[in-house]
Nucleic acid binder design. Sequence first.
DNA 1: TATGAATGAGGCTTCATTCAT
DNA 2: AATGAATGAAGCCTCATTCAT
Lengths: 207, 207, 207, 207
Amino acid sequence: MEVKQLSRREREKLRQRQEMLAAALDLFSQKGYHNVSMAEIAQKAEFAIGTLYKFFQNKEDLYKALLLELCEEFEVSISQAIEQPQDEVEKLRSFIRAKTEVVRRNLPVIRLYLAESRGASFNIKAGLDDEIRNRFYLSLEKIAAIFASGIKNHRFKNIADPYYLAVALASVIDATLLLWLDAPERHPYPENPDTILDLFFKGLLEP
Amino acid sequence: MEVKQLSRREREKLRQRQEMLAAALDLFSQKGYHNVSMAEIAQKAEFAIGTLYKFFQNKEDLYKALLLELCEEFEVSISQAIEQPQDEVEKLRSFIRAKTEVVRRNLPVIRLYLAESRGASFNIKAGLDDEIRNRFYLSLEKIAAIFASGIKNHRFKNIADPYYLAVALASVIDATLLLWLDAPERHPYPENPDTILDLFFKGLLEP
Amino acid sequence: MEVKQLSRREREKLRQRQEMLAAALDLFSQKGYHNVSMAEIAQKAEFAIGTLYKFFQNKEDLYKALLLELCEEFEVSISQAIEQPQDEVEKLRSFIRAKTEVVRRNLPVIRLYLAESRGASFNIKAGLDDEIRNRFYLSLEKIAAIFASGIKNHRFKNIADPYYLAVALASVIDATLLLWLDAPERHPYPENPDTILDLFFKGLLEP
Amino acid sequence: MEVKQLSRREREKLRQRQEMLAAALDLFSQKGYHNVSMAEIAQKAEFAIGTLYKFFQNKEDLYKALLLELCEEFEVSISQAIEQPQDEVEKLRSFIRAKTEVVRRNLPVIRLYLAESRGASFNIKAGLDDEIRNRFYLSLEKIAAIFASGIKNHRFKNIADPYYLAVALASVIDATLLLWLDAPERHPYPENPDTILDLFFKGLLEP
DNA sequence: TATGAATGAGGCTTCATTCAT
DNA sequence: AATGAATGAAGCCTCATTCAT
């Protein structure tokens, strides 16, 4: 494995990078990109500003790295969840569970992620956020593939384009998450993925 | 009508305010709150900066006015749509049609509105955006009431809390809109509200 | 008298000017020259800004007019007080009484007057305040003349240059006034001019 | 001595701070607080504006630092002068000498100091200048104590409240200083403190 | 003549980024 | 290699003054 060949120096660097990203993440998710200064991040990460700039070309670069890292975790989790050899219904359940789990682990960034993935962000200059958007779309396509497969297998009714179905499912999960973030006690997050799936399945499943 | 009694001066002022809001809207929705300067807005609106400040106390105030104006239009449209004496299904169709219509008319702001209403924004200092968030929740409750009524009338199955249903419907509409905004030709916006409703109805309607 | 020949129009103008000066005086003395805007003055005087500019060329001009008016009152009062045919001691008593009286009538401006007359002001661009400073010095010379006369008449010991004596007396009066302005109840203003004069007389008077 | 333990870095910082204060002092005393911009100060001190803000939180803070520094020097000088074991008359002489000396060394700020200490200033927002005012009053009380002691020892006649005597003495010194500042050649500053003291002593001293 | 809306220069302050140590 | 002091462009906002009505 490549990982083992990292020298002590390189491992140290990676650790420092992670600390910087963690500090930045914390601040960005609390106050938003434009309300956090590089000095603030440096101080929280306990490095000098100059060191920050050794690791990231500029503020935007740091932000992008942050989001890509997050993206990565999302994708890995979700890919693992749906790549198991299961039937389509079970895959969707796993997807919902995985997404919920990642959210639980990354609570502070959820808003950032939603903003960036859904397009309501202007933190990144035009064109730079394409990568993140594209990766989001790619993971949607994996879900769409499940629906497509389910339709092909006659487990689902063919009531809509699979991609639309995937978008709809993802957006309902996100909406539920936001509801819960805003008022956790009034809108408890459903432990059982079927709470969300029912909305779709009661109609999607063949009789 | 009160409107007719506005003096020429007052009408002129209103028109100027609208021009300022329009310029600001255009810029904000293209570049985001923090990437637009007051000088830029003033120039686009063809007023002096000082004049901008005669109409709006500060940048945040201008932004808030923009969003409230949009809020207003959303609410009026949607209220009118669902207050007709119709059955629940038809009301939901009207809701989707109305929301689509407003979006069509306010294309540039949609991202702004979604960001603010869904919570991924840090443009407004804590506490100031409560009004917008609250009004968003209130309109969701009107939709929830339709679902509740439908459930009570046995037109809908009781598969989930009406508020969740409303949130889910609204989020699916938004997701569809965003899809269309990103790639209008690949993801054309469905003219027929049933395209979206089917997702819910095929399961919600009693057999 | 010229005054009687003022037309109704002219009298009206004069009254308006006085109202503007009164409003400005009130604000300047409360908040200082640089913390008062022309708009504020106009509003308090219940005129339009443009009207203010019909009467005074600019902000500085208005301020200067204010101070000159104040100067005028000081001078008239003090001149009247010391031009009576009295002996020197009585003249100084009259001077202190008159100054006290004017202060009582112009309480809000005292700080302004002291600042300008004593040189601690930067409200007026260099050179413009010369007139005020000069008039202040002129009135000091009138007091100096009293001391000189007293010395010549052997009522006063010749312990210092009369001008220094005048400056000393004026400054002691001002200091007493400031003390009283800062804490009226702890440092009541002396009703009897001899309270101040004693400081000088017990030494000045020939045995 | 603590002073020697300052690192080179700290000494450098202190020197820079002094340069900034010197530049600010020069400008403020020439043109007044409101007629000097931070850009002007930065340029005169030959630093970037941002550097100015590294040392002082804002313009007002810089101004306050300036005055406090001056305050400090005044107080130290005057305290030293009057804490010698001398009789009351000699103490007052020392006080006048010390005050004169400090003034000579701080010529440019004298007007600023007088303005702030005597209350004719609106440069500092309400409440912030209390410290300066209070320290001024405290030093007056030290002088008052000398008079009180002299009265108790029957060296001085009990012709007035000691605090009034202190205020009167201080104000006469200030007035003499201002006279000299305005026209040094016409009103030379008296080298001998007795020139000022005579005004008081000829009456204060018991026969 | 009186008005007050419109102007825009200029002030204060922040902060991303650089670079000498 | 790491540091953080220094930089200065750029942003927000105020307000004296003008001028068309």
